[in-house]
Amino acid sequence: MKHLASTRIAAALGFALTNTTLLAAEPHVHGAGTLQLVLEGDSLNAELRLSAMDVVGFEHAPREAKHKEAVKKAVAMLKDSRKVLALPDAAQCTAAPGAVESELLEDGHAAGYKHDKHDKHDKHEAGHDHADGEAHADFEVTYRFDCRRPETLKQIKTLLFQQLPRLERLDVEMVTPAGQRSQRLVPGQDTITLP
């Protein structure tokens, strides 16, 4: 038993350390999302992470009809890449539908949640087990664009701030053949400039 406790502490410590030094996957912060873009060849890959709080306004498993409805609407919005990122027409990109993952989805990790109290407990356990160290609920969306003229991709506008009023900032990390760059977007300054 004692042994078990100490491994737990060690795990928790390791978890804390991971979170402070992780750059790519910032810890779960309400109001702040991350977007990672990689442009290689003709394809632009994007990975978006948002806290469920910013997307739907709650982080527990949706039980009531209105919560379920909110999640459904959010997923539909996030899937539609045109509602998230506005790529310049000149680049002539076609988008595959975004792949949305979240603990709040019925087929996701959250399927087993029942009671609030249990919820919390479960989530903490899940936090340790999860590679990403999530103790809350997140939305992760991956997009892929195939562009005929990727060299004209210089600026990308994000429409997320209009869609998600709770979102206060979006930290963007980009990797293109021209280099690596990061940029912080806030409402009003919502255009990504690629290197």
Binding site: T18, L22, L23, A25, V175, R181, P195
Partner: peptide, 24 residues
């Protein structure tokens, strides 16, 4: 790149840190 960065940051055998030099 970002997937591998995450993988290295979560490397179980030893605490490692992977950075993108341009971003850092």
């Amino acid at each position: 790149i970002f997937r591998l960065q995450r993988e290295i940051n979560e490397f179980s055998a030893e605490p490692l840190l992977a950075i993108l030099p341009g971003l850092t």
